Every structure is written in C-alpha cells, then in structure tokens.
Simulated assay, not measured.
Amino acid sequence: MKKSLLNVTVNSPDALRLARWWADALDGEILAENEGWFVIVSLGEGRPGLAFQKVESVSSGSRLHLDFGVDDMNAAVEGLVAAGATLIAERSMPGVTWTTLADPDGNEFCVAEHG
C-alpha cells in the first residue's frame, strides 16, 4: 500500500491566525476553517497540506520542524521576515547553506535553495 503524507499538523492557541499566516507566506489556500479548531491549508495539488489544530497551550516538548526548498533563498527569507517570521540563524556545512526562522508562534523551520 502506498502511503502519502497528507498534512503536517501544528498545535496553536490561535490555529486560524497561524494558518492564515502560513497560507499567505507559502501562497497556499485555506480549504477548511472548522470554526478555528482545525484549519487545513492546501499548498497545491500533489503536495502535503498543513493543518493547524487549536489547543489551550502549546507543550514545551519537541517542536515540529519543516524544511523548505526555494529558488532564491535571500528573497524568500526577506519575504518571510517581512511577513512576521523571526530570523534564528544562518547555518552551513560543506555543500549546503540554510536559514533557520521561526513563525509567529515560535515554531522553527528552515529555508534552503534547491540544488
């Protein structure tokens, strides 16, 4: 049986606000709001979606981590920071450079150029 990732789910005290932020940041579309308790964002056909589940408080346990490939890392990072992301660090190792950011709720994610 083939298995596909459908959604990556993020817990948030304000799921709708965070879903809207990510939909805007990634040119996605909100498919379902479910009165703000479980919001689904489509990133395009054939791609996994993002889901945001309302919780009373976010646990301090391990956090979700997303990695994104982009064509122009500098432009992508500038756009995300302008939209409300926080720059955490510029990182590199032989053959790859990436930037770690955090969304408005503090969930970290990385951006690197394709190739």
Rank of each mutant, 00 (worst) to 15 (best):
M1E: 12
K3E: 08
S4H: 11
N7T: 15
N7Q: 14
V8P: 02
T9D: 01
V10F: 13
S12H: 05
P13E: 03
A15H: 11
L16C: 09
L16P: 00
R17W: 01
R17L: 13
R17S: 07
R17E: 07
R17G: 03
R20L: 05
R20W: 00
R20P: 10
W21N: 11
W21R: 08
W21L: 12
D27K: 02
I30C: 09
I30M: 03
L31G: 11
N34A: 13
E35D: 15
G36L: 07
G36R: 06
W37T: 15
F38C: 10
V39D: 01
V41Y: 05
S42P: 08
L43F: 05
L43D: 05
G44Q: 08
G44L: 00
E45Y: 04
E45K: 14
R47F: 15
R47Y: 13
P48W: 02
G49L: 05
L50N: 09
A51V: 00
A51I: 00
F52V: 01
F52Q: 02
E56W: 08
V58H: 02
V58N: 05
V58F: 08
S59D: 08
S60G: 14
S60L: 14
S62M: 11
R63G: 08
R63Y: 05
H65W: 12
L66V: 13
D67F: 04
D67S: 03
F68C: 11
V70G: 02
D72C: 04
N74V: 15
N74F: 13
N74D: 15
A75H: 04
A76R: 01
A76M: 06
V77D: 08
E78R: 14
E78D: 15
E78W: 10
G79P: 07
L80H: 04
L80Q: 09
L80F: 06
V81C: 10
V81N: 05
G84V: 07
A85R: 03
T86G: 07
L87Q: 12
L87C: 10
I88W: 04
E90N: 12
E90S: 14
S92A: 14
S92D: 04
P94N: 14
G95N: 08
T97L: 09
T99Y: 04
T100W: 13
L101M: 02
A102V: 10
A102I: 04
A102R: 08
P104Y: 03
P104M: 03
N107Y: 09
E108S: 12
V111Q: 07
E113G: 12
H114D: 15
H114A: 15
